[in-house]
């Protein structure tokens, strides 16, 4: 089973899903993320699904679970980068993910969390 890495950028934990998720990886990610939120005191979680080709009910439920779980630990979750075909399919499947915040891309997601974007501009220091 492959594990999904969790990166820390300032106050935000970034999870970029680059693999075809099997159910066990989904469950591990939920647990790893809960641990990491507590350990780092992160205030936000971004789940980047730009590379994810399908979201079925199990994966969709993970988003809702992570959002509720992180809220209980004082962190906000944003799902970013959902492909149009995935959004259409999710709605038809019957999963509207009402309680999950979304943003079109990583940059908008970071802004939504009020997180400082990494300063890439040279000569500003």
């Amino acid at each position: 089973m492959e594990r999904v890495p969790i990166l820390k950028i300032g106050d935000v934990l970034l999870v970029s899903i680059q693999i075809d998720l099997q159910d066990q990886s989904v469950l591990s990610l939920q647990e790893d993320l809960a641990d990491k939120i507590v350990k780092t005191g992160a205030r936000g979680v971004i789940i980047d699904i730009t590379a994810v080709e399908i979201v079925d009910s199990f994966i969709g439920r993970m988003f809702a679970t992570i959002a509720s779980m992180s809220r209980l630990m004082d962190a906000e979750t944003v799902v970013v980068g959902m492909r149009p075909a995935v959004a259409i399919t999710l709605v038809e499947l019957g999963l509207s993910l009402g309680g999950v915040r979304t943003a079109l891309d990583l940059e908008k997601g970071m802004r939504l969390l009020g997180a400082a974007l990494p300063d890439t501009g040279a000569g500003r220091r």
């Binding site: 159910d23 080709e53 399908i54 079925d56 149009p84 399919t89």
Partner: peptide, 17 residues
């Protein structure tokens, strides 16, 4: 189409599970 592919793969994923 990409949308139909996505729908079929998603349905298959549910049924395989």
């Amino acid at each position: 189409s990409l949308v139909d592919q996505t729908k079929l793969i998603t349905a298959a994923s549910e049924l395989a599970r």
